[in-house]
C-alpha cells in the first residue's frame, strides 16, 4: 500500500522495543532473580540441611556432684557444662525433663537419666531472609511486589522467545530448546503425578 512503511519496519521496531523492555526488566529484577534462585536451591534441599539455622547439638551426662533433688540448680548446671550464655527462663517440659532457655539456645535436662542436650542455634540470617521473602512470609505489601516479579518473569519468558529470528530464533534452535524446556516438567507430571 502506498504511503505505508514496509512490514519489516514494524517488525524491527517491535523486536527492538521488546529487546529494550526485556533488558530493562532483566536489570530491574536482577536482585529478585538472585534472591529466588538462591532461596530456591536452599529450600529444594531442605530435607538434607537446614537453610535457616545452623544448629549444633552437644549431649552428655551431668556432673555427678550436682544435686537434682530440690529446685533445679540451673546456673551450676550451665557452668558445669561450660556454657557462658545467660539463662532467660526455664520450664518443666516433661515428668523428668526441664528445658532451660539461653536466648535462642536451649538446654534440656533429663533429671532421671542425668543427661543433657544443649542446642546452639545460629541464624543463617541472609539465607533466612531470602527464604522468608521467597516463601512470602511477609504477606501484605510484599505480595504486590512479588506478584509484579511473577508477571515480569512471565513477560521475560514470553518476550525471550521473540528476541532473535532466523536459525537461532523460535523457528530454529530456540524453538527446539523451548519445546524441550516445556516437555521436561510435563514428563515429570505424567510419570509421578498422574
Amino acid at each position: 500500500m502506498a504511503g505505508c512503511p514496509p512490514a519489516f519496519f514494524f517488525d524491527m521496531t517491535f523486536r527492538n522495543r521488546l529487546r529494550q523492555l526485556h533488558r530493562d526488566f532483566g536489570y530491574f529484577f536482577f536482585g529478585m532473580s538472585v534472591i529466588f534462585a538462591v532461596s530456591g536451591l536452599a529450600v529444594n534441599h531442605i530435607d538434607d540441611w537446614n537453610p535457616n539455622y545452623d544448629i549444633r547439638v552437644k549431649t552428655g551426662r551431668l556432673d555427678s556432684a550436682l544435686s537434682l533433688a530440690g529446685p533445679l540448680p540451673i546456673t551450676q548446671i550451665a557452668r558445669s557444662i561450660g556454657l557462658q550464655d545467660s539463662v532467660t527462663g526455664y520450664v518443666r517440659s516433661d515428668r523428668h525433663r526441664f528445658m532451660i532457655f539461653l536466648g535462642t539456645n536451649s538446654l534440656e535436662i533429663d533429671t532421671l537419666r542425668r543427661t543433657y542436650r544443649y542446642e546452639q542455634v545460629e541464624e543463617r540470617w541472609l539465607l533466612h531472609a531470602f527464604n522468608r521473602l521467597h516463601l512470602n512470609e511477609l504477606k501484605n505489601g510484599w505480595v504486590f511486589f512479588s506478584d509484579f516479579f511473577a508477571l515480569g518473569l512471565f513477560f521475560m519468558a514470553v518476550s525471550g522467545l521473540f528476541l532473535n529470528r532466523g536459525r537461532n530464533g523460535l523457528k530454529g534452535r530456540g524453538g527446539w530448546l523451548a519445546l524441550a524446556g516445556v516437555l521436561i516438567p510435563f514428563i515429570f507430571v505424567f510419570l509421578y503425578l498422574m
Binding site: 537446614n50 528445658m99 542455634v121
Partner: peptide, 17 residues
Amino acid sequence: KKRGCWIKVVDDKSGSS
C-alpha cells in the same frame, strides 16, 4: 526448625505438652 510448621507447647505446672 526448618519450616516453622509446628510448635510444642508445655503447661508450666504439670509438664503436660
